[in-house]
Every structure is written in C-alpha cells, then in structure tokens.
Simulated scan of single mutants.
Amino acid sequence: MQHPQSLAFAPTLTLPVAPEVAQCGFPSPAQDYPTEELDLTARLIRDRVATYIWKAAGHSMEPVVPDGSMLIVDRGIAPAPGRIVVAIVDGEYTVKRLHVDNDGRVTLQAENPEYPDIELPELSEMTIWGVVTYIISPAT
C-alpha cells in the first residue's frame, strides 16, 4: 500500500483575487484586474507536514464528494463523529462520514442512499487515516 505524499515541501500557491464579488443572481459589471493575491496554501492547509491530497473515486459519497474530487486530508486532526474521514477497513482505504452511536459502535456512513454504510463487526480492523478538511470538486 502506497501513501500519498505530504504537502510539507510543496510550493506555496497564490492566485490573484478579483476585485469584485461574482453575483450568483443578477450579474454585476467587474473590473478587469485583480487587486490582491490569495495564498491558497495558508487558507486551506493547517499543517503542511500532516496534510495530504487524495483523489476521490466512486459514487458512495455523492453529492457531498463527487467522483474525481480532490480531498485535502489532515492527519493531525482528531477524528470526530460527523466528520468525513479517510479510513482503512481491513486493509482497504475508504472515504465515509464517521458515526459513533451511544454504545460506542462505529459506522462509516455513505452520503449516497444507494450505497450501504459500513458497520464494523467486532473483529474488523479499522483505522482513521485522516480527516477531510476540504473537498475540491470538479466543475459540472
């Protein structure tokens, strides 16, 4: 099993920010030049050493995580119920929403109702690899 590379040594990414907002309703005329830059690395990554990019494949987490999305995953964040996580279940990676019931039983929940949740039997081996902090979805 090969793990993705850490973003620890990745270059900083800054992009120009348009001087106006983009209206989702009635359009507003905007200027043709940016006035500032946004450092996406500083905005999206809490800890570069603990942060990885994963590519999502499949449809079990749609519409929250569309197939082909890029996931920013932080290994330094403690997993908590309700968070989307990358988990290893019996040696296989999966992306699901973490649920823990009152009895302490763990379920990895699919967002798409056409896919079953993963209820962990007592002898299953499960590790939370990291917590998804951002989802970069492909444009539709």
Results as ranks from 00 to 15, higher is better:
residue 133 T to K: 13
residue 47 D to I: 11
residue 125 E to C: 08
residue 8 A to F: 00
residue 101 D to F: 12
residue 45 I to L: 07
residue 140 T to V: 09
residue 9 F to L: 05
residue 128 I to M: 02
residue 56 A to L: 08
residue 107 T to F: 07
residue 124 S to P: 00
residue 99 H to M: 10
residue 139 A to M: 14
residue 70 M to R: 10
residue 11 P to G: 08
residue 95 V to D: 01
residue 108 L to C: 10
residue 87 A to H: 06
residue 131 V to N: 05
residue 97 R to W: 09
residue 136 I to M: 12
residue 45 I to R: 07
residue 14 T to Q: 14
residue 97 R to E: 15
residue 24 C to D: 01
residue 115 Y to P: 02
residue 73 V to L: 07
residue 95 V to I: 10
residue 110 A to G: 09
residue 105 R to F: 15
residue 5 Q to P: 00
residue 17 V to R: 15
residue 104 G to R: 09
residue 131 V to M: 06
residue 17 V to D: 02
residue 126 M to L: 12
residue 44 L to F: 15
residue 28 S to W: 07
residue 33 Y to D: 00
residue 21 V to C: 04
residue 48 R to N: 01
residue 54 W to M: 09
residue 28 S to M: 13
residue 110 A to I: 09
residue 11 P to V: 12
residue 18 A to K: 06
residue 100 V to I: 15
residue 98 L to P: 15
residue 99 H to I: 02
residue 57 A to D: 11
residue 85 V to A: 09
residue 114 E to S: 15
residue 62 E to Y: 03
residue 120 L to K: 08
residue 87 A to M: 06
residue 21 V to S: 12
residue 76 G to S: 10
residue 84 I to V: 14
residue 112 N to V: 09
residue 101 D to V: 07
residue 18 A to V: 04
residue 46 R to D: 15
residue 17 V to N: 08
residue 98 L to R: 15
residue 60 S to R: 03
residue 29 P to K: 02
residue 128 I to F: 05
residue 2 Q to V: 04
residue 83 R to G: 08
residue 14 T to F: 02
residue 12 T to L: 12
residue 122 E to Q: 10
residue 96 K to F: 09
residue 3 H to M: 03
